[in-house]
């Protein structure tokens, strides 16, 4: 039983990270109908920014909490700047082009950013400082759940609650919902749709950067390629939950994380991807719109 709980909690940790990244995919898809393949790279850039800031700050002997906050802020700002710029440079000019064009542009951006970080940084794995200490009060349960797992799960939960409130109650949230449901009508009610799209990229990038910081500190190393794997997994989570749906992305993230965790624990870690993607295939066969997705009616 204890083993089950341990696997469950580590599944929640994985799932949290997938969910944080998946939200970026799903929000962008909901607003402009684009799979932003460069989103995984945003997460990677967030992790690198956090790496640089936290390494520098720890040399100067900053307290851990200060490092986490500053590194998190820097990662969020820097990743958002990338997300914003990518949309402006690579997607906005293709807004009225056939759907395939921005998709190819996104793949190009992803490859470009990976290689850019590879050249600007290094191809080696870099040791990421452990930013989350082992808490004393966690000691009795430390064999089941680590402190960083707890921090990841709680941070993700907080991020979800804030995001839900923003979307439900703020002006920009209402504008985002309207834009995702009917972009032309959103324009006709006076919404500046370009601004809504930019904001969506900024929010998605911020969540991915937070995820990047947390998981890098949890695992303890990063390199230029982490965005690819995490991106594919998070994209899978978004599709699993129903792309375009925000609760769907969160649910998909957790379902995927738990599946992988149990597959690793009860079968073998070699099979975690097999189970994860088999699940995706099954969902796509029996409910193509995803767990919480709405069947889309395509008007011709």
């Amino acid at each position: 039983m204890e083993y089950f709980i341990e696997l469950f909690l580590s599944g929640l940790t994985r799932g949290s990270i997938y969910a944080l990244i998946a939200l970026g995919y799903t929000m962008v898809y909901g607003i402009i109908g684009l799979i932003n393949f460069a989103h995984g790279e945003i997460y990677m850039i967030g992790a690198f920014t956090a790496f640089i800031i936290s390494t520098v700050l720890s040399i100067y002997g900053f307290p851990l909490l200060g490092i986490i906050v500053l590194a998190g802020l820097a990662a969020a700002v820097w990743a958002s700047a990338y997300g914003y710029t990518i949309e402006k440079l690579a997607y906005r000019p293709l807004r009225h082009a056939p759907r395939l064009s921005p998709l190819i542009s996104a793949i190009g951006m992803s490859i470009f950013l990976q290689n850019y970080v590879l050249l600007a940084q290094t191809s080696d794995f870099l040791p990421f400082p452990e930013l989350i200490p082992e808490f004393d009060f966690m000691e009795p349960v430390a064999h089941i759940i680590g402190s960083s797992d707890l921090v990841i799960i709680l941070t993700t939960a907080a991020a979800m609650v804030i995001l839900t409130l923003v979307i439900k109650f703020t002006r920009i949230g209402k504008a985002m919902r309207a834009t995702s449901q009917d972009r032309m009508m959103a324009m006709l009610t006076g919404i500046n749709v370009d601004r809504v799209i930019s904001t969506t990229f900024i929010i998605g990038s911020t969540l991915a950067a937070v995820g990047g910081l947390l998981i890098a500190s949890h695992i303890g190393q990063i390199n230029f390629f982490i965005g690819f794997i995490a991106g594919i997994k998070a994209f899978t989570a978004a599709v699993l939950g129903g792309i375009g749906s925000i609760p769907g992305a969160v649910l998909g993230g957790f379902v995927l994380g738990l599946t992988e965790s149990f597959a690793t624990g009860y079968v073998s870690s070699d099979y975690e991807d097999v189970f994860a993607f088999s699940l995706l295939v099954l969902i796509l066969i029996f409910k193509p719109s995803g767990i919480l997705g709405r069947a889309e009616i395509q008007k011709v």
Binding site: R177, A178, Q181, D182, M184, M185, M187, L188, T189, G190, I191, N192, V193
Partner: peptide, 21 residues
């Protein structure tokens, strides 16, 4: 831009109504 035009006081009810479903 469309939003500036709405701001000036020109509103449209488009064909097909375009309710946010």
């Amino acid at each position: 831009s469309p939003d500036e035009i709405v701001r000036m006081g020109i509103c449209q009810v488009p064909e097909g109504r375009h309710i946010f479903p």
